[in-house]
């Protein structure tokens, strides 16, 4: 096996021997990256767990001030975007370039719908004085501090999630341009594949955020 047996292509970079090895490495790399993301979000989930168990009643009251219908609708939007992402990956496997672009644009659009709804919700918090800081006020609670903690965590967690959505949007845009340039074929579609993994991961984070932030002890009401 000679050392520089092959010219470098997208599907076979010079450090790899076979295309399968390259695809394996890229996929493994993305999975490990997602593990680091779990640890990254994990710090905030830990803080949430501790403060929710310290102030269970206040967290329940604050949680019920969030609009559960908007949150639920947004969850559906995000799940649909995951579905279109899967369709994009499948189109890539079949080498159907136009279908890839179509599905990626749909995914991107659904992602922006989600972010738009999120922005509307954040704006509501401004109006209601539920933004942590000197102007914070939550009606009907004696301890304003822990109430503010709930909203701090709400903004930190949904904010970090939204940041990941924005990064995902950037990746999708890049993929759309590259697909139009004809970079992906049925033989080489690793970037679409690993971007799909990332997009689903960001979805799953929301699947955990939605019940933790919106649905606390709702049955008690």
């Amino acid at each position: 096996m000679a050392n520089q047996a092959h010219e470098e292509t997208l599907a076979l970079r010079e450090q790899f021997d076979t295309e399968a090895q390259q695809k394996d490495a890229s996929t493994l790399g993305m999975w490990i990256f997602l593990v680091t993301e779990i640890m990254f979000f994990g710090g905030m989930f830990l803080a949430y767990t501790i403060y929710r168990s310290t102030y269970p009643e206040i967290f329940a009251v604050c949680s019920s001030s969030l609009n559960v219908y908007i949150g639920a609708a947004n969850t559906v939007v995000l799940l649909c975007s995951s579905f279109t992402m899967v369709l994009a990956v499948r189109s890539a496997q079949l080498g159907r370039q136009r279908a890839i672009v179509f599905n990626l644009i749909l995914t991107l659009a659904l992602g922006f719908v989600f972010l738009g709804v999120k922005a509307y919700e954040w704006n509501e918090k401004f109006v209601e004085h539920h933004i942590p800081g000197p102007g914070f006020h939550f009606e009907g609670i004696a301890q304003q501090g822990p109430a503010q903690l709930f909203f701090s965590l709400y903004f930190a967690m949904t904010g970090l999630h939204a940041l990941h959505m924005l990064i995902g949007g950037g990746i999708l845009t890049w993929l759309i341009i590259r697909t139009k340039q004809g970079a992906f074929t049925a033989e080489y579609m690793t970037p679409v594949d690993v971007a799909g993994l990332y997009w689903h991961f960001v979805d799953i984070i929301w699947i955990f955020l939605f019940p933790l932030l919106y649905l606390i002890d709702r049955h008690l009401k």
Binding site: T36, M39, F40, G42, P132, Q143, G145, L149, A156
Partner: peptide, 28 residues
């Protein structure tokens, strides 16, 4: 390392916006 990253992020939020996560005055 990601845990350090999110910890520093929370320190930054605390310092910039006083979100209270590490502040006993707000129950943190």
């Amino acid at each position: 390392t990601p845990v350090l990253a999110v910890t520093l992020l929370l320190v930054l939020c605390e310092r910039l916006f006083h979100i209270g996560i590490f502040d006993p005055a707000l129950g943190g």
